[in-house]
Design a protein around this nucleic acid. Sequence first.
DNA 1: CTGTTAGCGCTTTCAC
DNA 2: GTGAAAGCGCTAACAG
Lengths: 342, 342
Amino acid sequence: MATEKEGPSHRKVTSVDVAKLAGVSRSAVSRTFTADASVSKQTREKVLRAAQELGYRVNKLASSLISNRSDLVGIIASNMDNPFRAQQVESLSRVLLSRGLKPILLLVEGAEDPSQIIGMLLEYNVSGVIVTSDTPPQSICQECITLGVPMVLVNKAESATDVDRVLLDNHKSGVLAAITLYESGAREMAFVTTEHPSYSLNVRIASFIKQCEKLGLTPVTQLTGKLQNYQGGMSACGQYLTKHRTVDGVFCVSDYMALGFLDGLRLNGPVEVPAQMKVISCDDIPQASWPIYELTTIRQDTHKLAVVVVDVLQERIKQPNNPAAVKILDVELVHRNSTATV
Amino acid sequence: MATEKEGPSHRKVTSVDVAKLAGVSRSAVSRTFTADASVSKQTREKVLRAAQELGYRVNKLASSLISNRSDLVGIIASNMDNPFRAQQVESLSRVLLSRGLKPILLLVEGAEDPSQIIGMLLEYNVSGVIVTSDTPPQSICQECITLGVPMVLVNKAESATDVDRVLLDNHKSGVLAAITLYESGAREMAFVTTEHPSYSLNVRIASFIKQCEKLGLTPVTQLTGKLQNYQGGMSACGQYLTKHRTVDGVFCVSDYMALGFLDGLRLNGPVEVPAQMKVISCDDIPQASWPIYELTTIRQDTHKLAVVVVDVLQERIKQPNNPAAVKILDVELVHRNSTATV
DNA sequence: CTGTTAGCGCTTTCAC
DNA sequence: GTGAAAGCGCTAACAG
């Protein structure tokens, strides 16, 4: 029922309709809408005109059935409350769309059942998967790899199997943080991290500590928040206030934590920044530049990151059997008031 | 090339393979994986076992080709820097996934070319579209409607054509804001909005003003930021500080703006909150509860919202010809320090 | 309840 | 460069 006179404008204009109107074959229509076609300009124009008139659109579902290219890309993400994460998802979505790929957004939380996620990806024959989640169920990655689904890990450790990865220069971040704090006058260092830090956070910290040692600034105090968020930063600040008041330079693994740390200083101290305490962190989320924070940070440009991630993914799609690529993106120090010399 | 011995585990297990192994027909396999099937328990088990063994998964692309149900849902969003927006997208994504629908995330910015977006939605035969963007290109909505694509607008004005909408109780928000400010002792009212407010923001303000009039609190001062964000709130604060110092109660159309307003008071005043000034706004983003802000706000629960939105969408998918539904969701006052009586 | 028979709309050899 | 034919993997009628 309801095929003849249901809606104002009929759906379901097929390539046959266009072919008929244009006076060509379905193949010609198909070719017109295929990137690397081989159609005469004449036919192409006839087809386009007819398509326009009928409001024809290629049915990607049907085409991907045979071409095996769905152009759907799964984004596996989590913790969108962290502005950096939200920005990252936004950037990825934009870049994918600009390349003709369509992002399917899959939010996963730690303990969630990953088999559902995998199922979905496979059912839709996704062209690729991008994993930005801190704690991506290993099983997802593993299965994607064994099934030959192109995948890119963002800022994650290498896994058992070789797989494409794009990393921010976490090592440089740690080094830069130590140097910047030192140059701003801090001499007793601490860092703020979480109980279950991800790979990238650990690298930042290891490099930070090592650089502190090189600078002769030991020991380096560890302040730990439960989660990698505002509350975590604030509770780490509590540890500083109660047990480590001699510290005068702090490296937070992320801006999100740093905001909590700074507010802890302000509310529970007050400890003046940068007069009594220098603070630096990583990401450069919008809040870092807010005048209330003026947080010195090591920028990780989410747009640039997204561009590289999608580049790598598309390369992998084109060349499924190439060896795994690892790209390291540069980061950039953004000087603000929290490490100003007074 | 590369079909025989390419990967470790072969892809492309089809229903035929499963049928063969299970000793049944392809239809039996299909029925086993269809929700409202009609299969004997025996066959079902045989099929499931065979499927398990082969690692079979339904190819949704193929199935949607004939069933016309892709289970893909477009989310049209923007301004993910606003934490409320990010949270909204996250909630929608989660709820969709929990119902077996897959969110395609489409970020659009005001002036972007909408025809591309429409094209995408149509090419993938999306089961529905959810529009949360403040400024959704009208053309997208219009075309979806004429093409009969189920669509739900979130917190948007009614358009020319009838279409499902889910609204937060913006009227109540405005009224509640006025009353709360009044009860906290404020007597000279202002509101903070943007140069191009969306429909929902306008309703909030209209109701706020009307309620202020009822309370005998006129005139009501308008403070305007350029954009609906932190910076906008802060620049609105500038107007208060320079031209309207007698105001003692402010209603911000969103928490995001309120944060900027509060920081403006703190940095450029300082004006004490709540002693000299009461502030209230809408959303209840995580930041509102941060101890540095303690912002009284009118909560709009994004999860509840998402549930209702998806309910409406699924109902529309089931009953395409029902009259358009309009649901209004309740909002809830969250009292915090910014309207405390001193 | 089950199998058989037709396609869904498209791309892609393959001759011409 | 173009058309005819052959499916991609699946579901939905239809008999049995």
